[in-house]
Design a protein around this nucleic acid. Structure first.
Lengths: 206, 206
DNA sequence: TCATGGTTTAACCATTTGGTTAATGACTGC
DNA sequence: GCAGTCATTAACCAAATGGTTAAACCATGA
């Protein structure tokens, strides 16, 4: 076998390019030529490394999505107390998002247009979704103790994820509606790292 | 001039078809042939009524977006008391969303991939965004009276919009993560009409 | 009834796009 | 230094796609 270094570098360059283009333009909007240009290689080389557009896309998509679910699960399934867990969850989630700001739109889009693909491909990985048992138990305990208002765990989780993800999904929309420029928006996102958990905890505690 | 009815009907059929296909597949993913099929007409007729894919898309997009902003503004700029305003805002917003469940993803996508187009096209309509003056004043008053915690109006609005819109944007993602089927999800959305405003008010009131 | 003008269609065209092929480079072990 | 193999490229191909054209259709008013 030859040195891995050269081929690995090219492969990585392609993957990085593909991620950038796919995330930016979506599957349908992405052109193989765009990806080739971005990676500074010949278009044929794309097909040499990754047979088809479909396969390349699926790989990129899976690689990126697979990073998220386990992290989230590990937090949500931890032994931290409820409020601490919420804080950690939000912190971790927002950190992840600020490293992959375009991932949510990408994921949501693909999941919208080809739901079938993921139910089969993603399900085995996550054992069908979030591990919420422990979390639900915690909430029931806190409700029983009168520490928080009665609220469905699903609602709480959905709200939490909403507040984390939406600013990334809806960035251009929000920027337009409120008239923020890039710098201002970055500051808003930074602020939210402190605000979101508080907002949530405030909304449920008695 | 001939009877309007026939041409109007065809035009409306095309528009309905175009909306469905564009919203479902996005601009790049939508095929003129798909739209023609959906409208049960010849592809050439599309170009007869709406010169190009671009023009057709722009029309559909604008027509649909233009419905939202004024409604939102009228609520946010009303004379209702803060908590009532939040309730009305959420109710109206969610009602609008349940009539156009795919609009948010559509808008967010388009705004993401062609931000330029909208800053010029949309700005004149909304005078640059939301009318938040009165709303800000109200919040400041409530803070001064000690009724609510100090929170930036922008944060509150962003959170509110997040909690309303995200369940529509992220529907397939949430469905997958939590393992909801269509019926279950519809019930979740129904529930939220009651929950969301409470959640928000709870989070800000002292 | 027939000329007129908007409406609709089948056939066609040019370009784009995903994908292939055959030839060239370049590096390795012998 | 040469045979062999992986990496890379230019040229090419077929299908898909947005868009056009010219002819047919059809309701109406003269």
């Amino acid at each position: 076998m030859r040195l891995k270094k050269i081929s690995a570098t090219t492969e990585e360059r392609i993957k990085a390019a593909a991620k950038k283009i796919f995330v930016q333009k979506g599957y349908a909007g992405a052109r193989m030529q765009d990806i080739a240009n971005e990676a500074k290689i010949n278009k044929a080389l794309l097909h040499y490394y990754f047979r088809s557009k479909d396969q390349l896309f699926e790989l990129i998509f899976m690689e990126n999505v697979q990073k998220m679910m386990p992290k989230i699960n590990s937090i949500i399934d931890s032994d931290d107390k409820l409020f601490v867990k919420i804080e950690k969850f939000v912190a971790e989630y927002l950190a992840m998002l600020s490293e992959n700001p375009f991932l949510p739109l990408f994921v949501v889009n693909e999941l919208s247009s080809h739901p079938e693909r993921f139910i089969e491909k993603l399900a085995p990985l996550t054992h069908g979704g979030l591990k919420v048992n422990k979390f639900i138990q915690q909430m029931q305990d806190e409700v029983a103790k009168g520490k928080i208002i009665p609220i469905s765990p699903v609602t709480l989780l959905m709200n939490t994820i909403s507040l984390c993800v939406f600013p990334y999904l809806g960035k251009p929309m929000i920027q337009f509606v409120f008239g923020f420029d890039e710098l201002q928006y970055r500051m808003i996102l930074e602020q939210r790292k402190n605000e979101v958990a508080l907002f949530i905890i405030n909304s449920i505690k008695k």
